[in-house]
Design a protein around this nucleic acid. Sequence first.
DNA 1: GCCAACGTTGGC
DNA 2: GCCAACGTTGGC
Length: 157
Amino acid sequence: MQYWLFKSEPDDYSFDDLKNDTNQTTLWDGIRNYQARNILRDQVKMNDYVLFYHSSCKNVGIVGIAQVVKTAYPDPSQFDTNSKYYDEKSTTDSPRWVSVDIQYVKPLNKMLTLAEIKKLEQFNDMVLVNRGRLSIQPVSESEWTEVLKLTKTELNT
DNA sequence: GCCAACGTTGGC
DNA sequence: GCCAACGTTGGC
């Protein structure tokens, strides 16, 4: 099993928006960073778990869990001239950007804020702490387990 | 709104 | 291929 952290600005698309979306599922579009794109395209697999992170807001941190329900396919917004993610250099023959689909699983029993994560030693190696700006990032198994433990969240698998 | 840390662009 | 200039992310 693999684990990821996806960032979203809640004003734009929040974890609650995912909960209320059709089939509690959304396509994750608008990724326009090559490193994040490569992770989405090459590494993110079916049924991988995703920590849903709220960025650029009053309360930044991890709020919930989602799961990958469709692996990488061309991000439709790159061909949409009305989208802010439109990319004129991308073609249908060789699309530059990809999306995946994720589905709502459940919220954490309590939010785990970035401030708390930074304080805890077990997250010292987390990409979120060391690297910061990367909207799709890997989460290790031990980090994943710690997040669930600290927030008293259980997954009935 | 500030600004640090990146990432991207484009001239040479 | 280097690197300066510029743009973006994202915490605070």
